[in-house]
Design a protein around this nucleic acid. Structure first.
Lengths: 134, 134
DNA sequence: ATTAGTGCAAACACTTTGCACGGGT
DNA sequence: ACCCGTGCAAAGTGTTTGCACTAAT
């Protein structure tokens, strides 16, 4: 389960388990929407969880540093966050802007300049089958 | 040559060949730095080419629409642009922030949700050999 | 008790917009 | 001559910062 692993990761990295952090961790648990900081803030505020914008950004940064989540750059307008830290790709539909996960990717590339790999992300942009129908 | 192809693409799409557009096309010709709009603006201004920010953004948008360049999202802080429209990946060094091209990539993935592919970009983040040395 | 984390509001950086003017076709 | 493209300045977003206060350990 994501929540337990995220809490472990925070503890191991010496971070405290504060309320806003727990709310955000719970929000991200099982979330497949690749939410942005603003979406996380809005949704949790609707849910009567009160905290500031600075806290969302700080917490997301903390979770990335603790290795609990990944920051993805599919969207040119804002950073999005993914609780699924397994190596996988993303497909963005340019009509509906939904971000789909791409599992089971096979990638081969030259490592000429590369000394260390921190994270791999495959970005594909196009039209999803849902939008194509219309 | 990129410049000739870009001019063709602009003409074909019915866009005019204005001075700022030509400066930006020339600036991008052979450029491997994946520059941002701000970098393009600053560099060309240093080179005594006068035009506004709005024009950089408009022109880059126009060039993307004309299919002459690609917008890449490797950098979470800003959009970067690539005159190389061939299918290739990008490696970003988290120390020096340089963006390297990755040629000869082989990718295989499931197309379950995908009806149309517009563009594929492989993003790898890590440490480059140059920075690792130090 | 200690120190990391939070809230707030202002500042920032990148990007977009609206409208009058100027230059390519 | 027409109308797209440009310049300007202002506004819009997403994100970061500094400092006083609060709460987790």
């Amino acid at each position: 389960m994501f929540k337990e692993k995220a809490i472990e990761a925070l503890k191991n990295a010496g971070f405290k388990l504060t309320k806003p952090r727990m709310w955000i961790v719970e929000y991200l648990d099982g979330n497949k929407n690749h939410p942005s900081a603003v979406e996380i803030y809005d949704d949790l505020r609707k849910d009567k969880k009160y905290f500031s914008f600075a806290t969302v950004y700080n917490t997301l940064d903390t979770l990335v540093k603790a290795g609990a989540i990944k920051q993805i750059t599919v969207d040119p307008t804002c950073s999005r966050f993914d609780p699924d830290i397994s190596e996988h790709g993303h497909f963005v539909c340019k009509i509906c802007n939904k971000v789909y996960d791409l599992e089971n990717i096979q990638i081969d590339f030259e490592k000429d300049y590369i000394a260390e790999i921190e994270h791999i992300d495959l970005h594909i942009k196009g039209v999803c089958k849902n939008c194509k129908k219309q």
